[in-house]
């Protein structure tokens, strides 16, 4: 339990830092766009005091109380799930994000799981058969690893997307067919959602898998030099078992570095959502940015951070489950 609690402490601190950063940025960075908008409104002449108040309210920017009071209020509101109000959508940020979140979480969950499982398996396989033709996978994986997610998304849209110009196999715009199906628990809607998720998830999987492949390959190769693998072979165990021995141990450092992986995947997925106009949290972040809807931007940032921290915590729990040494200390 100790390890997990310790990590939880780190994550709580990280969440606090993220919240504080998002609170401070519009308030202390000189010349930031929120302050700018308020200043413009109050100087424009055709906006009276009430109007300025309204603008301030809207932007969540208030110069009339002390920073500390604002902070207390901000955190207090957050604690009640109140993330402010989005002026572009004219709705509470919290409600909005709740409606975006499922899209992102499902895509992220499925893509990360598949990419992790497939990537680790492939990486193990490549390491196991090192020196053979499988080594050709390495330069390819390296290339994929270096390719920006959204560029891969553009290529995939071009080749496979219905908004592309080549094969037009799969839908590549929006989260479902907004013209012909009604959201709800009906089959056409579900089919449409699944169909629309194919290309974005394939993109995220392809882009993130290479990292797992390479990491796992290096780890398995390193592990295979360990004595216990030699002993497993000396024991006459079938190759399958020996490979499992090596893979299981190699997995530990990969899982313990999941923090970095998940951070990259989330970052990449934000951009993928934009390319596909996929109605998740990333797409709306982009949307809010272009509409200068700062309370929405902040809210989304805080929520993304919380999601990533939760994912990290899951990875930590998994780590403790698969490493008896950590478990004992736990």
């Amino acid at each position: 339990m100790g390890v997990i609690l310790r990590r939880l402490g780190v994550y709580l601190l990280a969440a606090w830092v993220a919240i504080t950063v998002s609170f401070l940025l519009p308030r202390v960075v000189p010349g930031n766009p929120v302050a700018g908008a308020v200043a413009r409104a109050s100087q424009s002449g055709n906006c009276n005091e009430l109007c300025v108040r309204a603008v301030e309210e809207q932007l969540g920017f208030n110069v009339h109380t002390s920073l500390w009071d604002q902070y207390v209020q901000y955190v207090g509101n957050l604690a009640h799930g109140d993330l402010g109000r989005s002026w572009s959508e004219n709705a509470p940020v919290g409600t909005l994000i709740l409606s975006y979140l499922p899209w992102t979480l499902v895509l992220l969950g499925i893509a990360t799981t598949i990419s992790f499982v497939a990537g680790s398996t492939l990486g193990t396989f490549i390491a196991w058969r090192r020196g053979s033709w499988t080594d050709w996978a390495i330069p390819f994986a390296t290339f994929f690893q270096a390719t920006p997610y959204f560029f891969l998304a553009l290529v995939i849209v071009l080749v496979f997307g219905q908004t592309g110009t080549m094969l037009k196999w799969f839908p590549s715009l929006f989260g479902y067919d907004i013209f012909s199906v009604t959201p709800g628990p009906n089959l056409p809607y579900i089919q449409s959602v699944v169909g629309h998720a194919i290309l974005p998830s394939v993109t995220v999987i392809l882009a993130s898998m290479a990292g797992f492949i390479l990491a796992m390959r290096n780890q398995v190769i390193t592990t295979m030099d360990e004595d216990f693998v030699l002993v497993a072979q000396a024991k006459g165990l079938p190759n399958r078992t020996v490979m499992w021995y090596a893979a299981r141990n190699a997995l530990l450092p990969v899982v313990s570095n999941f923090t970095i992986a998940i951070s990259l995947i989330v970052g990449g997925q934000i951009l993928v959502e934009i390319v596909f106009n996929y109605p998740g949290i990333g797409f709306h972040l982009f949307d809010a940015l272009s509409k200068l809807d700062y309370s929405l931007v902040q809210g989304i940032f805080v929520v993304i951070t919380l999601v990533v921290l939760a994912a990290n915590l899951i990875a930590d729990v998994i780590y403790v489950l698969i490493d008896p040494r950590a478990r004992q200390a736990a």
């Binding site: 994550y11 990280a14 830092v17 998940i262 970052g267 940015l289 989304i300 990533v308």
Partner: peptide, 9 residues
């Protein structure tokens, strides 16, 4: 632990 790209944005 804080995701890089969102923070960057």
């Amino acid at each position: 632990a804080i995701p890089g790209l969102p923070l960057l944005i």
